[in-house]
């Protein structure tokens, strides 16, 4: 038996709240897909013995989302479309299951409930068709001929034939490595040294899943100071420990040079301070892409590193600092016409 649950968050919910709701669904259910912004579909087929009755599952998910700080409403029905319509009618914080035939449920609703182009809705209104029942009464072939394929698909939904599958999205992975230090770390170099070990662990986990880190976050717990959070975007995404450490080192280099002991003083939230614990987390990942091996140039694989350094220095030193030369005219009379200097990173 087909059973689908559709959860919707509040229209005004923040992206973080929506992400928390999606995470909660992923923890509770095996197959979760995204229908729209803040609207998630769950395929509950075959889960009754394992998880219980669909309505009970839906209520548990509502409670789970509440605990995660995201209020949602859930509709349970024999198809994703009808379940979504039911979820839209359900107040936030509640779960409802369709107690009647899907066609009968949809019949009195306005035709605009269906996924139809507004111009088609207007055309149907001119024909005197204002509810789903009237639209469902039309001949499918005529709808296809006169109104197109999308309208025919909507006609199938109006007739209770909802075969839309749930395209599952993989749950967000939490790839994190952390360490607490017996003695607090008081220098940047020591911290970078410690981060190398953590980066090795994160890189191992990334590569085991065939992933590369796109966004990396460093959390550093400090004595007498709030947690330091540094976020970096890695372009191109990387799973190499050296690339992860290099990016974090640059993030640390970009902090203002302050005395370590001055951490915690008012207005000095960027000073490193004494680090008691550190953790690296890959908060956004991408599938790891292959890299062209330097078959005829053994060191060619390091080209990415060199370009990354050039990008970093370009950002730090500004335009006109990181250059590449090209000999234009070696016999030119004027030296400035001999060579053209161009930016390595535009």
């Amino acid at each position: 038996m087909k059973v689908f649950a559709v959860a919707r968050t509040a229209q005004a919910a923040s992206d973080a709240a929506r992400q928390r709701a999606l995470d909660a669904l992923h923890t509770a259910l095996p197959r979760v897909g995204v229908l729209d912004r803040g609207v998630y579909a769950c395929d509950l087929r075959g889960t009754r013995r394992l998880l219980g009755a669909p309505l009970e599952v839906a209520r548990r998910i509502v409670a789970l989302c509440e605990r995660a700080g995201a209020t949602c409403a859930i509709g349970v029905g024999p198809g994703t479309f009808v379940a979504r319509v039911l979820a839209d009618q359900t107040p936030l914080g509640e779960a409802r299951e369709l107690a009647m035939d899907a066609r009968a449920f949809l019949a009195p609703l306005p035709v605009a409930t269906l996924p139809l182009d507004p111009r088609i809705v207007d055309e149907l209104a001119l024909m005197g068709i204002r509810d789903v029942a009237g639209f469902a009464a039309l001949d499918r072939g005529s709808v296809l001929d006169r109104l197109g394929r999308a309208a025919a698909a909507a006609h199938a939904l109006a007739s209770g034939m909802d075969d839309l599958p749930v395209h599952g999205v993989p749950p967000r992975r939490r790839i994190r490595a952390g360490r607490r230090f017996d003695d607090a770390i008081g220098s940047k170099e020591q911290l970078v040294f410690a981060l190398r070990v953590l980066a090795d662990t994160v890189a191992d986990r990334l590569r085991a899943d065939g992933l590369a880190a796109l966004r990396l976050v460093l959390h550093a717990e400090r004595e007498d100071a709030p947690v330091l959070r540094l976020e970096r975007v890695l372009l191109p995404p990387a799973a190499e420990p050296a690339a992860l450490v290099r990016s974090l080192r640059w993030a640390l280099d970009e902090l203002p040079h302050r005395s370590f002991v001055s951490a915690g003083t008012p207005g000095d939230r960027h000073a490193l301070g004494r680090i008691e614990a550190a953790a690296i987390e890959a908060v956004e990942v991408e599938p790891l892409r292959g890299r062209q091996l330097g078959l005829f140039a053994p060191d060619g694989a390091h080209a990415e590193e060199a370009i990354a350094v050039a990008q970093h220095l370009r950002g730090r030193l500004g335009a006109g600092a990181v250059l590449r030369a090209r000999v234009q005219s070696p016999d030119a009379r004027l030296p400035e016409r001999e060579v053209e200097w161009t930016e390595v990173v535009a």
Binding site: V309, L317, R324, A325, V339
Partner: peptide, 19 residues
């Protein structure tokens, strides 16, 4: 850069930092 080129330097793989 011309002397570098004469010395066999590949200018495409030479990053010059002028600061």
């Amino acid at each position: 850069a011309v002397a570098a080129s004469h010395a066999g330097v590949d200018l495409n793989r030479l990053l010059v930092v002028r600061t």
